[in-house]
């Protein structure tokens, strides 16, 4: 997964990783890989969310200034 991966795709992948872990009984090694990938994706999503929040706040600040 690159940084360009969209939030939506990332979230879907996270959900599918959870599903694999819960239902497909991966072995420890596979689990370790999946958890690593999932943790990375969660971090990515959190970053995106943070950026979005920041942008949102910026926009709102601009709107307030224009009033």
């Amino acid at each position: 997964m690159t940084k360009k991966t969209s939030y939506k795709v990332a979230l879907a992948r996270i959900e599918s990783i959870v599903d694999i872990v819960e239902n497909q009984e991966p072995d420890v090694d596979e689990l370790a890989e999946l958890v690593k990938e999932g943790t990375k994706l969660v971090a990515l999503c959190k970053e995106k969310l943070r950026n979005t929040e920041t942008e949102l706040n910026e926009s709102l600040k601009q709107l307030d200034q224009n009033d």
């Binding site: 969660v42 929040e53 949102l56």
Partner: peptide, 27 residues
Amino acid sequence: LEKSLMYIDKNKQTLSNFEKQFELLEP
């Protein structure tokens, strides 16, 4: 604003749940 914040909160929650799950699953 409200919806956006709600969305962000909800996603934060979701992500944090996933994070916890993944922490627990860590070998």
